[in-house]
Write a protein that binds this DNA or RNA. Structure first.
Lengths: 233, 233
DNA sequence: TCAAAGCATTTTGTGTACATTTTGAAATCG
DNA sequence: CGATTTCAAAATGTACACAAAATGCTTTGA
Protein backbone atom coordinates (compact mmCIF):
# COMPACT_ATOMS: atom_id res chain seq x y z
CA UNK A 1 0.00 0.00 0.00
CA UNK A 2 1.09 3.53 0.77
CA UNK A 3 4.77 3.05 0.35
CA UNK A 4 5.32 6.72 -0.24
CA UNK A 5 4.41 7.68 3.27
CA UNK A 6 7.60 7.31 5.31
CA UNK A 7 10.28 9.49 3.76
CA UNK A 8 11.34 10.41 7.27
CA UNK A 9 11.38 7.21 9.28
CA UNK A 10 11.41 9.49 12.29
CA UNK A 11 12.70 6.47 14.12
CA UNK A 12 14.51 7.49 17.20
CA UNK A 13 15.61 5.63 20.24
CA UNK A 14 15.31 6.08 23.96
CA UNK A 15 18.97 6.96 24.24
CA UNK A 16 18.80 9.93 21.92
CA UNK A 17 15.56 11.33 23.29
CA UNK A 18 16.93 11.02 26.81
CA UNK A 19 20.09 12.76 25.66
CA UNK A 20 18.02 15.58 24.22
CA UNK A 21 16.05 16.03 27.41
CA UNK A 22 19.18 15.98 29.52
CA UNK A 23 20.93 18.46 27.28
CA UNK A 24 18.08 20.93 27.70
CA UNK A 25 17.93 20.32 31.42
CA UNK A 26 21.65 20.87 31.85
CA UNK A 27 21.67 24.00 29.72
CA UNK A 28 18.68 25.27 31.67
CA UNK A 29 20.68 24.85 34.84
CA UNK A 30 18.53 22.11 36.33
CA UNK A 31 21.70 20.29 37.29
CA UNK A 32 24.36 22.16 39.19
CA UNK A 33 27.81 22.41 37.62
CA UNK A 34 30.04 19.74 39.10
CA UNK A 35 27.05 17.67 40.17
CA UNK A 36 27.42 13.95 39.87
CA UNK A 37 25.03 12.28 37.47
CA UNK A 38 24.00 8.95 38.94
CA UNK A 39 22.67 6.45 36.46
CA UNK A 40 20.28 4.65 38.78
CA UNK A 41 18.57 7.81 39.97
CA UNK A 42 17.75 8.91 36.45
CA UNK A 43 16.82 5.43 35.34
CA UNK A 44 14.29 5.18 38.16
CA UNK A 45 12.98 8.65 37.49
CA UNK A 46 12.51 7.97 33.79
CA UNK A 47 11.43 4.33 34.15
CA UNK A 48 14.08 2.95 31.86
CA UNK A 49 17.06 0.76 32.48
CA UNK A 50 20.55 2.10 33.01
CA UNK A 51 21.63 1.21 29.49
CA UNK A 52 20.03 4.10 27.57
CA UNK A 53 20.97 6.44 30.42
CA UNK A 54 24.60 5.47 30.00
CA UNK A 55 24.37 5.97 26.26
CA UNK A 56 22.93 9.44 26.76
CA UNK A 57 25.67 10.30 29.25
CA UNK A 58 28.33 9.21 26.82
CA UNK A 59 26.80 11.27 24.06
CA UNK A 60 26.65 14.36 26.26
CA UNK A 61 30.21 13.78 27.38
CA UNK A 62 31.17 13.86 23.73
CA UNK A 63 29.52 17.25 23.42
CA UNK A 64 31.43 18.50 26.41
CA UNK A 65 28.46 18.93 28.71
CA UNK A 66 29.50 16.09 30.99
CA UNK A 67 32.90 14.82 31.98
CA UNK A 68 33.65 11.20 32.66
CA UNK A 69 36.11 9.67 35.07
CA UNK A 70 36.61 5.91 34.84
CA UNK A 71 35.09 4.00 37.72
CA UNK A 72 33.71 7.22 39.15
CA UNK A 73 31.06 8.34 36.76
CA UNK A 74 29.75 11.39 34.97
CA UNK A 75 29.71 14.93 36.32
CA UNK A 76 28.16 18.10 34.99
CA UNK A 77 31.03 20.04 33.52
CA UNK A 78 31.82 23.25 35.31
CA UNK A 79 33.45 26.18 33.63
CA UNK A 80 35.82 28.66 35.16
CA UNK A 81 35.71 32.31 34.21
CA UNK A 82 38.88 31.63 32.28
CA UNK A 83 37.08 28.91 30.32
CA UNK A 84 34.26 31.25 29.44
CA UNK A 85 36.62 33.98 28.29
CA UNK A 86 38.50 31.52 26.16
CA UNK A 87 35.27 30.24 24.70
CA UNK A 88 34.47 33.76 23.56
CA UNK A 89 37.90 34.06 21.99
CA UNK A 90 37.35 30.81 20.15
CA UNK A 91 33.96 32.00 19.03
CA UNK A 92 35.47 35.25 17.86
CA UNK A 93 38.03 33.39 15.75
CA UNK A 94 35.55 30.90 14.32
CA UNK A 95 32.75 33.36 13.68
CA UNK A 96 35.24 35.64 12.03
CA UNK A 97 36.23 32.76 9.80
CA UNK A 98 32.61 32.00 8.99
CA UNK A 99 31.95 35.65 8.15
CA UNK A 100 34.93 35.79 5.84
CA UNK A 101 33.82 32.66 4.06
CA UNK A 102 30.26 33.94 3.82
CA UNK A 103 31.55 37.09 2.16
CA UNK A 104 33.74 35.12 -0.21
CA UNK A 105 31.08 32.63 -1.17
CA UNK A 106 28.12 34.96 -1.12
CA UNK A 107 24.69 34.52 0.36
CA UNK A 108 21.81 32.61 -1.14
CA UNK A 109 18.57 34.48 -1.64
CA UNK A 110 16.85 32.90 1.34
CA UNK A 111 19.85 33.65 3.53
CA UNK A 112 19.77 37.29 2.49
CA UNK A 113 16.09 37.44 3.28
CA UNK A 114 16.57 35.85 6.69
CA UNK A 115 19.46 38.18 7.56
CA UNK A 116 17.59 41.27 6.44
CA UNK A 117 14.52 40.22 8.36
CA UNK A 118 16.65 39.84 11.47
CA UNK A 119 18.24 43.23 10.92
CA UNK A 120 14.88 44.91 10.42
CA UNK A 121 13.37 43.27 13.47
CA UNK A 122 16.37 44.40 15.46
CA UNK A 123 16.03 47.95 14.17
CA UNK A 124 12.49 48.15 15.49
CA UNK A 125 13.54 46.74 18.84
CA UNK A 126 16.53 48.92 19.58
CA UNK A 127 14.59 52.07 18.79
CA UNK A 128 12.93 51.84 22.13
CA UNK A 129 14.19 53.73 25.15
CA UNK A 130 13.97 50.89 27.61
CA UNK A 131 13.92 47.12 27.13
CA UNK A 132 11.57 44.80 28.86
CA UNK A 133 12.64 41.29 29.69
CA UNK A 134 10.62 40.06 26.74
CA UNK A 135 12.39 42.50 24.44
CA UNK A 136 15.70 41.08 25.57
CA UNK A 137 14.55 37.56 24.98
CA UNK A 138 13.31 38.54 21.52
CA UNK A 139 16.58 40.23 20.70
CA UNK A 140 18.41 37.12 21.81
CA UNK A 141 16.53 35.16 19.17
CA UNK A 142 17.13 37.82 16.54
CA UNK A 143 20.82 37.79 17.38
CA UNK A 144 20.96 34.04 17.12
CA UNK A 145 19.15 34.09 13.79
CA UNK A 146 21.59 36.57 12.30
CA UNK A 147 24.62 34.61 13.44
CA UNK A 148 23.11 31.33 12.32
CA UNK A 149 22.67 32.67 8.81
CA UNK A 150 26.36 33.48 8.65
CA UNK A 151 27.35 30.12 10.09
CA UNK A 152 25.25 28.39 7.50
CA UNK A 153 26.49 30.52 4.64
CA UNK A 154 30.16 30.42 5.55
CA UNK A 155 30.66 27.52 7.84
CA UNK A 156 30.98 23.89 7.21
CA UNK A 157 29.30 21.45 9.52
CA UNK A 158 32.58 21.32 11.40
CA UNK A 159 32.60 25.03 12.13
CA UNK A 160 29.00 24.81 13.22
CA UNK A 161 29.75 21.88 15.50
CA UNK A 162 32.61 23.69 17.14
CA UNK A 163 30.60 26.86 17.53
CA UNK A 164 27.82 24.90 19.15
CA UNK A 165 30.26 23.48 21.66
CA UNK A 166 31.80 26.83 22.45
CA UNK A 167 28.37 28.38 22.83
CA UNK A 168 27.47 25.77 25.41
CA UNK A 169 30.37 26.81 27.60
CA UNK A 170 28.64 29.89 28.86
CA UNK A 171 25.18 28.46 29.43
CA UNK A 172 22.61 30.47 27.57
CA UNK A 173 25.37 32.61 26.19
CA UNK A 174 22.96 33.97 23.65
CA UNK A 175 20.91 35.25 26.53
CA UNK A 176 23.93 36.81 28.12
CA UNK A 177 24.21 39.27 25.31
CA UNK A 178 20.88 40.74 26.32
CA UNK A 179 21.83 41.13 29.96
CA UNK A 180 23.65 44.37 29.17
CA UNK A 181 22.70 47.96 28.75
CA UNK A 182 20.51 49.16 25.87
CA UNK A 183 23.46 51.20 24.70
CA UNK A 184 25.53 48.03 24.28
CA UNK A 185 22.72 46.26 22.50
CA UNK A 186 22.35 49.14 20.07
CA UNK A 187 26.05 49.11 19.39
CA UNK A 188 26.06 45.41 18.70
CA UNK A 189 23.06 45.65 16.49
CA UNK A 190 24.88 48.31 14.52
CA UNK A 191 27.78 45.87 14.26
CA UNK A 192 25.38 43.47 12.57
CA UNK A 193 24.55 46.07 9.93
CA UNK A 194 28.20 46.67 9.16
CA UNK A 195 29.00 42.99 9.05
CA UNK A 196 26.13 42.36 6.69
CA UNK A 197 27.26 45.22 4.50
CA UNK A 198 30.77 43.81 4.35
CA UNK A 199 29.40 40.43 3.38
CA UNK A 200 27.20 41.93 0.66
CA UNK A 201 30.14 43.83 -0.80
CA UNK A 202 32.19 40.63 -0.74
CA UNK A 203 34.81 42.22 1.52
CA UNK A 204 35.91 39.08 3.35
CA UNK A 205 38.71 40.70 5.30
CA UNK A 206 36.48 43.41 6.64
CA UNK A 207 33.69 40.99 7.47
CA UNK A 208 36.13 38.88 9.45
CA UNK A 209 37.62 41.76 11.41
CA UNK A 210 34.22 43.22 12.19
CA UNK A 211 32.82 39.90 13.31
CA UNK A 212 35.81 39.15 15.48
CA UNK A 213 35.60 42.47 17.20
CA UNK A 214 31.87 42.06 17.55
CA UNK A 215 32.21 38.82 19.46
CA UNK A 216 35.21 40.02 21.43
CA UNK A 217 33.19 42.99 22.60
CA UNK A 218 30.75 40.59 24.23
CA UNK A 219 33.67 39.02 26.01
CA UNK A 220 34.85 42.41 27.21
CA UNK A 221 31.39 43.35 28.40
CA UNK A 222 31.21 40.10 30.27
CA UNK A 223 34.56 40.70 31.93
CA UNK A 224 33.52 44.23 32.87
CA UNK A 225 30.24 43.02 34.32
CA UNK A 226 31.87 40.28 36.34
CA UNK A 227 34.53 42.62 37.68
CA UNK A 228 32.03 45.19 38.84
CA UNK A 229 29.97 42.64 40.74
CA UNK A 230 32.12 39.56 41.19
CA UNK A 231 29.88 38.00 43.82
CA UNK A 232 26.97 37.09 41.62
CA UNK A 233 27.35 33.64 40.17
CA UNK B 1 51.65 -1.77 54.80
CA UNK B 2 53.00 0.44 52.09
CA UNK B 3 50.08 2.74 51.80
CA UNK B 4 52.18 5.38 50.10
CA UNK B 5 52.48 3.36 46.95
CA UNK B 6 49.42 4.20 44.86
CA UNK B 7 49.33 7.94 44.27
CA UNK B 8 48.28 7.22 40.74
CA UNK B 9 45.54 4.61 40.86
CA UNK B 10 46.18 4.18 37.17
CA UNK B 11 42.86 2.42 37.15
CA UNK B 12 41.51 2.22 33.70
CA UNK B 13 38.72 0.26 32.17
CA UNK B 14 38.26 -1.96 29.18
CA UNK B 15 36.14 0.66 27.46
CA UNK B 16 38.82 3.33 27.50
CA UNK B 17 41.65 1.04 26.44
CA UNK B 18 39.54 -0.31 23.62
CA UNK B 19 38.73 3.26 22.61
CA UNK B 20 42.44 4.07 22.56
CA UNK B 21 43.25 1.08 20.39
CA UNK B 22 40.43 1.84 18.01
CA UNK B 23 41.40 5.48 17.74
CA UNK B 24 44.92 4.51 16.71
CA UNK B 25 43.64 1.90 14.30
CA UNK B 26 41.25 4.32 12.65
CA UNK B 27 43.84 7.06 12.37
CA UNK B 28 46.26 4.52 10.94
CA UNK B 29 43.72 3.74 8.28
CA UNK B 30 43.05 0.18 9.34
CA UNK B 31 39.37 0.86 8.87
CA UNK B 32 38.18 2.35 5.62
CA UNK B 33 36.30 5.65 5.73
CA UNK B 34 32.59 4.97 5.65
CA UNK B 35 33.08 1.42 6.85
CA UNK B 36 30.48 0.12 9.21
CA UNK B 37 31.75 -0.79 12.67
CA UNK B 38 29.92 -3.89 13.81
CA UNK B 39 29.89 -4.44 17.52
CA UNK B 40 29.76 -8.21 17.48
CA UNK B 41 32.71 -8.58 15.14
CA UNK B 42 34.98 -6.51 17.33
CA UNK B 43 33.67 -8.09 20.49
CA UNK B 44 34.54 -11.52 19.16
CA UNK B 45 37.92 -10.36 17.95
CA UNK B 46 38.81 -8.80 21.28
CA UNK B 47 37.11 -11.41 23.45
CA UNK B 48 34.94 -8.98 25.33
CA UNK B 49 31.22 -8.42 25.38
CA UNK B 50 29.48 -5.80 23.28
CA UNK B 51 29.11 -3.45 26.22
CA UNK B 52 32.62 -1.99 26.36
CA UNK B 53 32.70 -1.95 22.57
CA UNK B 54 29.62 0.22 22.52
CA UNK B 55 31.11 2.52 25.11
CA UNK B 56 34.25 2.90 23.03
CA UNK B 57 32.20 3.59 19.90
CA UNK B 58 30.25 6.29 21.68
CA UNK B 59 33.42 7.90 22.94
CA UNK B 60 34.96 7.91 19.48
CA UNK B 61 31.75 9.31 18.04
CA UNK B 62 32.11 12.17 20.49
CA UNK B 63 35.58 12.83 19.12
CA UNK B 64 34.23 12.87 15.62
CA UNK B 65 35.99 9.75 14.40
CA UNK B 66 32.79 7.76 14.11
CA UNK B 67 29.28 8.82 13.24
CA UNK B 68 26.21 7.21 14.70
CA UNK B 69 22.82 6.66 13.15
CA UNK B 70 20.11 5.38 15.46
CA UNK B 71 19.17 1.78 14.82
CA UNK B 72 21.83 1.52 12.17
CA UNK B 73 25.09 1.73 14.01
CA UNK B 74 28.48 3.36 13.87
CA UNK B 75 30.43 4.19 10.74
CA UNK B 76 33.97 5.44 10.24
CA UNK B 77 33.60 9.09 9.42
CA UNK B 78 34.64 10.04 5.94
CA UNK B 79 35.87 13.45 5.00
CA UNK B 80 35.45 15.23 1.74
CA UNK B 81 38.18 17.41 0.31
CA UNK B 82 36.02 20.34 1.33
CA UNK B 83 36.02 19.08 4.91
CA UNK B 84 39.79 18.82 4.93
CA UNK B 85 40.25 22.31 3.54
CA UNK B 86 37.87 23.69 6.10
CA UNK B 87 39.68 21.84 8.84
CA UNK B 88 42.86 23.62 7.83
CA UNK B 89 41.07 26.95 7.93
CA UNK B 90 39.81 26.18 11.40
CA UNK B 91 43.28 25.14 12.45
CA UNK B 92 44.67 28.35 11.01
CA UNK B 93 42.22 30.43 13.02
CA UNK B 94 42.70 28.48 16.25
CA UNK B 95 46.45 28.14 16.04
CA UNK B 96 46.65 31.84 15.28
CA UNK B 97 44.64 32.48 18.40
CA UNK B 98 46.90 30.22 20.45
CA UNK B 99 50.01 31.96 19.11
CA UNK B 100 48.62 35.37 20.00
CA UNK B 101 47.80 34.24 23.50
CA UNK B 102 51.20 32.62 23.87
CA UNK B 103 52.82 35.90 22.92
CA UNK B 104 50.62 37.84 25.31
CA UNK B 105 51.12 35.50 28.23
CA UNK B 106 54.73 34.61 27.60
CA UNK B 107 56.44 31.26 27.65
CA UNK B 108 57.60 29.35 30.71
CA UNK B 109 61.26 28.38 30.83
CA UNK B 110 60.62 24.75 29.92
CA UNK B 111 58.42 25.78 27.03
CA UNK B 112 61.16 28.04 25.70
CA UNK B 113 63.63 25.20 25.98
CA UNK B 114 61.33 22.78 24.20
CA UNK B 115 60.59 25.25 21.40
CA UNK B 116 64.25 26.11 20.92
CA UNK B 117 65.22 22.46 20.89
CA UNK B 118 62.63 21.86 18.17
CA UNK B 119 63.90 24.81 16.17
CA UNK B 120 67.50 23.66 16.46
CA UNK B 121 66.67 20.10 15.52
CA UNK B 122 64.78 21.43 12.52
CA UNK B 123 67.72 23.63 11.50
CA UNK B 124 69.98 20.61 11.33
CA UNK B 125 67.44 18.67 9.31
CA UNK B 126 66.58 21.22 6.67
CA UNK B 127 70.25 21.88 5.93
CA UNK B 128 70.38 18.68 3.96
CA UNK B 129 69.96 18.61 0.23
CA UNK B 130 67.60 15.67 0.07
CA UNK B 131 65.25 14.19 2.67
CA UNK B 132 64.91 10.51 3.36
CA UNK B 133 61.61 9.09 4.49
CA UNK B 134 62.98 8.92 8.01
CA UNK B 135 63.96 12.59 7.86
CA UNK B 136 60.43 13.45 6.94
CA UNK B 137 59.05 11.42 9.79
CA UNK B 138 61.46 13.10 12.19
CA UNK B 139 60.51 16.52 10.93
CA UNK B 140 56.88 15.64 11.43
CA UNK B 141 57.58 15.04 15.10
CA UNK B 142 59.62 18.22 15.38
CA UNK B 143 56.79 20.14 13.77
CA UNK B 144 54.27 18.66 16.14
CA UNK B 145 56.46 19.46 19.14
CA UNK B 146 56.76 23.09 18.15
CA UNK B 147 53.06 23.51 17.64
CA UNK B 148 52.24 21.66 20.84
CA UNK B 149 54.38 24.07 22.84
CA UNK B 150 52.37 26.97 21.51
CA UNK B 151 49.06 25.22 22.11
CA UNK B 152 50.07 24.56 25.69
CA UNK B 153 51.37 28.06 26.28
CA UNK B 154 48.51 29.90 24.66
CA UNK B 155 45.63 27.54 24.54
CA UNK B 156 43.17 26.43 27.11
CA UNK B 157 42.13 22.83 27.19
CA UNK B 158 39.25 23.82 24.96
CA UNK B 159 41.46 25.12 22.19
CA UNK B 160 43.56 22.00 22.45
CA UNK B 161 40.50 19.79 22.25
CA UNK B 162 39.24 21.55 19.17
CA UNK B 163 42.63 21.47 17.52
CA UNK B 164 42.87 17.76 18.21
CA UNK B 165 39.55 17.22 16.49
CA UNK B 166 40.46 19.34 13.49
CA UNK B 167 43.80 17.56 13.20
CA UNK B 168 42.03 14.23 13.02
CA UNK B 169 40.10 15.30 9.97
CA UNK B 170 42.99 14.80 7.63
CA UNK B 171 44.36 11.54 8.95
CA UNK B 172 48.00 11.85 9.84
CA UNK B 173 47.83 15.51 8.91
CA UNK B 174 51.12 16.03 10.69
CA UNK B 175 52.64 13.60 8.25
CA UNK B 176 51.12 15.43 5.34
CA UNK B 177 53.32 18.41 5.96
CA UNK B 178 56.37 16.29 5.21
CA UNK B 179 55.00 14.95 1.97
CA UNK B 180 56.06 18.08 0.16
CA UNK B 181 59.21 19.41 -1.40
CA UNK B 182 62.29 20.23 0.67
CA UNK B 183 61.88 23.81 -0.40
CA UNK B 184 58.44 23.94 1.20
CA UNK B 185 59.69 22.32 4.35
CA UNK B 186 62.49 24.87 4.63
CA UNK B 187 60.06 27.69 4.15
CA UNK B 188 57.79 26.35 6.84
CA UNK B 189 60.63 25.81 9.21
CA UNK B 190 61.62 29.41 8.67
CA UNK B 191 58.05 30.35 9.53
CA UNK B 192 58.60 28.65 12.86
CA UNK B 193 61.59 30.87 13.57
CA UNK B 194 59.64 34.01 12.82
CA UNK B 195 56.68 32.89 14.87
CA UNK B 196 58.91 32.10 17.80
CA UNK B 197 60.57 35.45 17.49
CA UNK B 198 57.23 37.21 17.50
CA UNK B 199 56.21 35.31 20.61
CA UNK B 200 59.47 36.16 22.39
CA UNK B 201 59.06 39.84 21.61
CA UNK B 202 55.49 39.66 22.86
CA UNK B 203 54.10 40.78 19.53
CA UNK B 204 50.77 39.00 19.69
CA UNK B 205 49.36 40.45 16.50
CA UNK B 206 52.35 39.43 14.45
CA UNK B 207 52.49 35.99 16.00
CA UNK B 208 48.86 35.46 15.08
CA UNK B 209 49.20 36.61 11.50
CA UNK B 210 52.34 34.58 10.93
CA UNK B 211 50.83 31.46 12.42
CA UNK B 212 47.66 31.80 10.42
CA UNK B 213 49.52 32.18 7.21
CA UNK B 214 51.79 29.32 8.18
CA UNK B 215 48.90 26.91 8.55
CA UNK B 216 47.06 28.29 5.53
CA UNK B 217 50.12 27.64 3.42
CA UNK B 218 49.83 23.96 4.26
CA UNK B 219 46.26 24.11 3.08
CA UNK B 220 47.33 25.73 -0.17
CA UNK B 221 50.08 23.17 -0.71
CA UNK B 222 47.56 20.44 -0.15
CA UNK B 223 45.15 21.95 -2.66
CA UNK B 224 47.94 22.35 -5.17
CA UNK B 225 49.07 18.77 -4.70
CA UNK B 226 45.60 17.37 -5.07
CA UNK B 227 44.92 19.43 -8.16
CA UNK B 228 48.08 18.32 -9.90
CA UNK B 229 47.38 14.63 -9.33
CA UNK B 230 43.73 14.33 -8.45
CA UNK B 231 43.63 10.58 -8.85
CA UNK B 232 45.56 9.69 -5.71
CA UNK B 233 43.36 9.39 -2.67
C1' DT C 1 39.32 13.06 70.95
C1' DC C 2 41.05 11.90 66.75
C1' DA C 3 42.70 9.07 63.25
C1' DA C 4 43.02 4.86 60.84
C1' DA C 5 41.21 0.42 59.59
C1' DG C 6 37.33 -2.42 58.34
C1' DC C 7 32.92 -3.23 56.57
C1' DA C 8 28.47 -2.47 54.40
C1' DT C 9 26.33 0.29 50.96
C1' DT C 10 26.31 2.51 46.77
C1' DT C 11 27.71 3.03 42.13
C1' DT C 12 29.94 1.90 38.01
C1' DG C 13 31.74 -1.81 34.67
C1' DT C 14 30.77 -5.94 32.16
C1' DG C 15 28.37 -10.07 30.50
C1' DT C 16 24.26 -11.97 28.72
C1' DA C 17 19.49 -12.64 27.16
C1' DC C 18 15.83 -10.96 24.64
C1' DA C 19 13.15 -7.41 21.82
C1' DT C 20 13.16 -4.43 17.90
C1' DT C 21 14.84 -2.95 13.76
C1' DT C 22 17.39 -3.31 9.73
C1' DT C 23 19.25 -5.86 5.97
C1' DG C 24 19.69 -8.79 2.23
C1' DA C 25 18.25 -12.38 -0.51
C1' DA C 26 14.92 -15.68 -2.00
C1' DA C 27 10.29 -16.03 -3.67
C1' DT C 28 6.36 -14.24 -5.94
C1' DC C 29 3.73 -11.54 -9.10
C1' DG C 30 3.26 -8.54 -13.07
C1' DC D 1 12.85 -10.56 -17.05
C1' DG D 2 12.28 -7.07 -13.68
C1' DA D 3 10.17 -5.11 -9.69
C1' DT D 4 7.92 -5.92 -5.45
C1' DT D 5 6.92 -8.61 -1.44
C1' DT D 6 8.09 -11.69 2.07
C1' DC D 7 10.76 -13.73 5.29
C1' DA D 8 14.92 -15.30 7.70
C1' DA D 9 19.38 -13.82 9.28
C1' DA D 10 22.03 -10.29 11.29
C1' DA D 11 22.74 -6.18 14.03
C1' DT D 12 21.33 -2.78 17.22
C1' DG D 13 18.54 -1.31 21.45
C1' DT D 14 17.20 -2.45 26.03
C1' DA D 15 16.73 -4.87 30.40
C1' DC D 16 18.71 -7.25 33.97
C1' DA D 17 22.23 -9.83 36.81
C1' DC D 18 26.51 -10.02 38.66
C1' DA D 19 31.48 -8.37 39.43
C1' DA D 20 34.62 -4.74 40.68
C1' DA D 21 35.48 -0.47 42.43
C1' DA D 22 34.50 3.61 45.16
C1' DT D 23 32.13 5.81 48.95
C1' DG D 24 30.69 6.61 53.53
C1' DC D 25 30.11 5.23 58.06
C1' DT D 26 31.04 2.64 61.96
C1' DT D 27 34.24 0.63 64.76
C1' DT D 28 38.56 0.22 66.89
C1' DG D 29 42.83 1.66 68.72
C1' DA D 30 46.14 4.85 70.87
Amino acid sequence: MKKTAPPEPETTTRSVSIAESLRCAILAGEFAPGERMIEIHLSERLNVSRTPIRAAFQALAGEGLLVHTPNKGYYVREFSLEDIVQAYEIRAALEGLAARRAAQMGLAREQMEAAEAALLAGDLLVEQEKFTQEDRSRYGLINKTFHDVIHTAGGSSMIKDMLRISEQVAPSSHHNVIAFEPRDVRRRHDDHHRIYEAILTRDGGRAEILMRDHVESVKLSLIRTLHSKPSSH
